[in-house]
Design a protein around this nucleic acid. Structure first.
Lengths: 201, 201
DNA sequence: CGCTTCACTTACCAAGTGGTAGACAATCCG
DNA sequence: CGGATTGTCTACCACTTGGTAAGTGAAGCG
């Protein structure tokens, strides 16, 4: 069972790297420090992932799986139409509270640019396609304001991720991120999105 | 005139640092490299700014002034009501095209957290207060959907900055950031914001 | 058993990092 | 003029970075 042990070590490496990359950032994370946290040596990390860049790739792949699974789960229990957006926003906020490093990694990677960002884009492409299809269908059915689904998706994505993650900005406008204020933010965000997206009846 | 020469050197340092911090990031910017670009030595930078952190502070102060001036100019020529938001969004997009490093710095600093983010918050506090007052007044006059101005501001801020700056995300949904697509994005964003904010008549 | 492979370690390394000390030429001021 | 100050540079420094080389003990396997 030495292979199982190795896989477990790798799991721990990936988890710690995801945590650190997603919160402190990629450059700000050193392999030495990462190894220290795990009680192993840097060379063990480099054994499992030949370079820091490849470690990032592996972390991205792992995070993509988690994200896709989370959203799939959220959507599978949701009804049609607006209910799906509601479910999605709720799951993003749940992520922001419970696994902030996941959303942080998305931000971080999009900041780092290619080739890491390309990898995320590829991994999440099915999710994006699905969202665009949904928006298009809703528009066709007259339930949403007619527009370009890709552009609407960008606006909605920016808004949701920003509101969910930009703690510092919230502090700037005088909102301490407590549980109560988070609920208030989510409620306001849903109202904001509802007004922005749903076609007037 | 040795003082004038020194001030000019400092100006160049601040400009180059703003550029690099705002695009490559703070940690990814080395003083040696920065000095190399300017044809001076790292020690000259450290003469003007005793540490990298203090250089960041100076860059933040400088950027804050530029940002405030830009928005003041945009708003001074704008009419009342929705026209002001329109003018603001246009000026953000103009910044995203012409001085992307400014918006990038805001993002970067909010990622870095305190104490840098605190400094930005303090510097831009008048801007934030002004925006909140504006939103409150519009709501009182019944021209905007009634809500908490602070929360609405966060949503709008996230949306605008995200759409204006998240080039990588745009690539992910298949939009190459050309001039034409930028115009389309801005138009969609304005429609999005208009629907989200303006009270139905 | 004995050889190989695997997971991991100890020991390095060259290249950078931010930062200090001190010299030096140019300028300012009495 | 001549000493003081200012801006910049040369020369370091301790430390950290990602990465390499060479092992080592244990498990797997013929």
């Amino acid at each position: 069972m030495r292979a199982a042990k190795a896989r477990e070590t790798d799991e721990r490496i990936l988890a710690a790297a995801l945590q650190s990359f997603g919160t402190k950032g990629f450059e700000a994370t050193s392999l030495d420090h990462l190894a220290g946290e795990l009680g192993i040596t840097k060379q063990t990390i480099l054994y499992h992932h030949p370079s820091k860049a490849e470690l990032l790739d592996a972390v991205i792949d792992r995070a993509s799986i988690d994200l896709t699974a989370t959203f799939d789960a959220a959507l599978s229990g949701a009804g049609p139409g607006w209910d799906r957006i509601d479910a999605l926003v709720r799951s993003v906020f749940r992520l922001a509270l419970r696994r902030p490093e996941l959303l942080g990694l998305v931000r971080e990677v999009s900041r780092l640019g290619a080739p890491a960002s390309t990898r995320v884009a590829q991994n999440l492409e099915p999710l994006v396609a699905r969202a665009q299809r949904f928006l298009g269908d809703e528009m066709d059915a007259g339930r949403m304001r007619r527009s370009d689904p890709a552009l609407v998706l960008v606006s909605a994505y920016s808004t949701v991720l920003g509101v969910a993650t930009e703690v510092e900005v919230l502090r700037a406008v005088g909102i301490e991120p407590t549980l109560r204020s988070t609920v208030a933010r989510r409620r306001e965000l849903l109202a904001f999105l509802h007004s922005a997206l749903v076609a007037p009846t």
